[in-house]
Simulated assay, not measured.
Amino acid sequence: MRFMGIDVVIPVHDEQELLAGCLDSLEACAEATPVPVTVTVVLDSCTDDSEAIARGRARIVRSDARNVGAARAVGFDALSVPSSPDRSGQRWYATTDADSRVPPTWLADQLRLALDGADLVAGLVEVTDWSGWNPATRVRYLEGYRSGSEHRHIHGANIGISARAYRELGGFERLPVHEDVHLVHRAERAGLSVAWSTATPVTTSARRHSRTPGGFSGHLALTELDHTPPGHTASDTTARGHTRSGVTP
Results as ranks from 00 to 15, higher is better:
Thr223Pro: 00
Ile10Arg: 04
Pro85Ser: 13
His232Gly: 15
His153Gln: 12
Ala122Asn: 03
Thr204His: 13
Ser88Ile: 05
Ser217Arg: 07
Ala70Leu: 00
Ser193Arg: 10
Arg189Lys: 11
Asp64Met: 08
Ser84Asp: 10
Trp92Gln: 07
Asp86Pro: 03
Thr105Ser: 02
Thr237Leu: 06
Ser245Met: 11
Val39Gln: 14
His219Met: 15
Asp49Ser: 15
Pro249His: 08
Gly5Ser: 14
Leu26Asp: 14
Asp14Val: 09
Pro11Leu: 03
Pro82Glu: 09
Ser210Gly: 00
Gln90Cys: 05
Ala199Leu: 13
Arg91Phe: 15
Leu124Glu: 00
Arg57Glu: 11
Arg55Ile: 06
His185Val: 11
Thr47Ala: 13
Arg152Phe: 11
Glu17Pro: 04
Ile6Val: 15
Met4Val: 10
Cys22Lys: 04
Arg207Trp: 08
Ala234Thr: 10
Val177Met: 08
Phe3Cys: 00
Pro229Gln: 10
Ala122Gln: 05
Ile159Ser: 12
Gly231Val: 15
Phe3Trp: 04
Arg138Pro: 03
Asp86Ile: 07
Ile10Tyr: 05
Val9Thr: 12
Val35His: 01
Ala187Gly: 12
Gly132Glu: 02
Leu183Gln: 09
Val74Ser: 13
Ala234Tyr: 10
Tyr93Arg: 08
Thr137Ile: 04
Tyr145Phe: 15
Val81Ala: 14
Pro229Ala: 14
Glu179Arg: 00
Pro213Leu: 11
Val12Thr: 10
Asn158Val: 06
His13Phe: 12
Thr96His: 02
Asp64Cys: 06
Leu19Ser: 10
Glu27Cys: 08
Ala54Gly: 10
Ser84Gly: 02
Thr40Glu: 12
Ala221Glu: 14
Gly148Gln: 04
Pro213Phe: 03
Gly89Tyr: 02
Val41Lys: 04
Pro135Ile: 14
Gly215His: 04
Val74Tyr: 01
Leu26His: 13
Trp92Glu: 05
Gly215Trp: 05
Leu175Thr: 04
Ser217Lys: 09
His182Ala: 11
Leu43Thr: 09
Val177Cys: 07
Cys29Ala: 15
Gly191Phe: 13
Trp130Asp: 03
Asp86Thr: 12
Arg112His: 11
Ile6Leu: 07
Asp48Cys: 07
Ala94Ile: 12
Ser235Trp: 11
Pro230Phe: 10
Asp236Thr: 08
Ile53Arg: 02
Asp99Trp: 00
Ala94Trp: 01
Ser88Tyr: 03
Thr38Ile: 10
Thr228Glu: 05
Trp106Gln: 01
Gly218Val: 01
Thr237Ser: 14
Ala187Glu: 01
Val37His: 04
Pro11Ser: 01
Val8Met: 06
Gly132Gln: 05
